[in-house]
Amino acid sequence: MINIYMNRKFNKLIKIFLILIIPFLYSCDKGIEPYPVETGPDITSFEGKVTFVGAWPEGINRTYIVVFSEPSRFDVNTLQYIIGPIPYGVSEFNYNSIENNLGLIPKLAAGEYPYVIVAQSKTPELSLLRQDWTVAGIYFNQGNTALPGILKIEQGKVVSGINITCDFNNPPVQPPSRWKMNYE
């Protein structure tokens, strides 16, 4: 007798339980997914000309165009893209950011980049340390040299006219030798 009573009650309770857990069993997406394999050429890029004025310093081992995500902050945390190398001693260098990509960073995403420079280094091996680099030229918007120009990259477009002048006789202001973190 007790078994029959229990079975009926049990079936009823199972139904109550299932109704109550329905809110838990709502469907949801699958969370993170594998990134898709990139297909087709991406033309998102920028291009321009670097002009060198004066005699090149001796001992330069590499010269690159470097894009940073924060103004006047030259360090690995803000480094976004590298173009080069620019041959030693040239007076002009025409570039396209895809064709002349150094290869260390595969792609520059669409967005705004407030610090685009030409940087030179004398170290035998490639170094990411700030103190191993000198800024030879800075990109300014249409001759306004008060502040570094902002490079605006749009998806699927080629931005032209990103020209930089490197005047070895009149070098630009150097960013801090070591970025002073707010908490230092």
Partner: peptide, 14 residues
């Protein structure tokens, strides 16, 4: 924290 030199280091956030 990843420092400006590209190293990981434990630092104090003020």
């Amino acid at each position: 924290l990843l420092t400006s030199e590209g190293n990981i280091q434990f630092v104090n956030l003020p």
